[in-house]
Amino acid sequence: MIFVDTNVLLDVVTDDENFAEWSIAQLEAAALQGDLLINDCVYAELSVGYREKERLDAFIEAAGLRHEMIPRDALFLAGKAFSAYRQAKGTKQNVLPDFFIGAHATVLSVPLLTRDARRYRTYFPSLELICPE
């Protein structure tokens, strides 16, 4: 299993000129290794780009993504990591979903496919990342 971050999926959906090719290749490689997972936060972030739930669900199915609810252990870990971020004087306001995603992948002990490795490396140091170097 490999957990997929929203930014990788958005690269594909928007045909991002800098990262679409990398993201597609990584998703294809990851799919050969097992299930591709997303959670509620990824679903919600993706939904911003869709007018109808059915179209989003069709994309998720076509991409071979499996949606899992966030377990309570991950919710607790996300809260602790977010608290550490705030104590370290983190000021970005839109980061909480990243903590839910990182904590969920950590609790499941699965790699995270992402383009935004810095925060994950800082707050989830045991998390294996698949990211551009």
Rank of each mutant, 00 (worst) to 15 (best):
90 G>Y: 01
106 T>P: 07
43 Y>N: 05
85 Y>I: 02
60 I>G: 08
76 F>D: 11
41 C>V: 00
4 V>K: 12
49 G>Q: 02
41 C>K: 15
3 F>W: 05
54 E>T: 14
79 G>H: 01
104 H>E: 09
39 N>A: 09
13 V>M: 09
33 Q>I: 12
10 L>S: 08
26 Q>P: 00
127 L>P: 00
125 P>G: 08
106 T>W: 03
52 E>M: 14
127 L>V: 03
40 D>G: 12
100 F>S: 04
6 T>W: 09
123 Y>W: 05
45 E>Y: 10
52 E>C: 10
34 G>D: 05
29 A>Q: 14
5 D>F: 07
31 A>I: 00
40 D>V: 14
55 R>W: 05
93 Q>D: 14
18 N>H: 07
122 T>E: 11
50 Y>H: 13
53 K>W: 04
52 E>Y: 15
125 P>E: 08
46 L>C: 10
105 A>Q: 11
77 L>N: 03
60 I>N: 12
93 Q>C: 00
25 A>Q: 15
41 C>F: 12
49 G>E: 04
124 F>D: 06
108 L>R: 15
73 D>C: 00
82 F>V: 09
70 I>K: 05
34 G>I: 12
8 V>P: 02
118 R>H: 10
65 L>G: 06
23 S>D: 01
90 G>H: 02
21 E>L: 04
21 E>H: 11
19 F>K: 12
96 L>S: 03
127 L>D: 04
81 A>C: 03
26 Q>M: 09
100 F>G: 04
81 A>W: 06
109 S>V: 14
102 G>D: 09
2 I>F: 11
32 L>W: 03
67 H>T: 15
113 L>H: 12
23 S>W: 01
108 L>N: 10
94 N>Q: 13
